[in-house]
């Protein structure tokens, strides 16, 4: 799903996918995994992840709709992940699936599905998603990006 790279002070990950939309999806799931771990994720196909039937937290899944615009796809990705980070860290929302309503290089509208967890479920404190040297690269029909998180 993603690879953790060496970064002296903070945390950098590399994510790859065969579409830009898939890249955004995988980056979002990677963020959830870093923050809460994957113990609540049961099985996954390239585009869908399911919540374990024995999910220990019994609340119904919630949904928020995000509409984000930016100058380019890299900034769009940083702002999308930044929004998810805020809801994850401050409201303990465990995002597990995303339904795209609009996806362009400068705007996304997306339904983000989540379960409510608790502060104690957080495994890591990520302060922010940075713009540091971010570039979505295309190589032989494969898209990749390196994202640096401030810890």
């Amino acid at each position: 799903m993603y690879e953790i790279l060496n970064h002296t002070a903070d945390l950098a990950i590399k994510v790859q996918s065969n579409t830009v939309k898939g890249l955004f999806y995988k980056c979002a799931i990677a963020l959830t995994d870093l923050l809460f771990g994957s113990q609540y994720l049961f099985r996954h196909t390239p585009y869908a992840l399911r919540i374990m039937p024995l999910f220990s937290i019994q609340q119904k899944a919630g949904k928020i709709t995000l509409q984000i615009t930016a100058n380019n796809k890299e900034d769009l990705l940083v702002e999308f992940l930044g929004e998810l980070l805020f809801h994850s860290i401050c409201k303990y929302r465990y995002f597990f699936d995303f339904k795209w309503k609009k996806f362009t290089e400068q705007e996304i509208i997306v339904d983000c599905l989540f379960h409510n967890l608790k502060a104690i479920d957080l495994k890591m404190d990520i302060k922010a998603v940075t713009y540091h040297n971010i570039k979505i690269k295309k190589d032989n029909n494969n898209f990749s990006v390196i994202i640096t998180f401030d810890l």
Partner: peptide, 8 residues
């Protein structure tokens, strides 16, 4: 040491 933007 290596940070992001400015060094630390």
């Amino acid at each position: 040491h290596y940070g992001y933007g400015f060094p630390i």
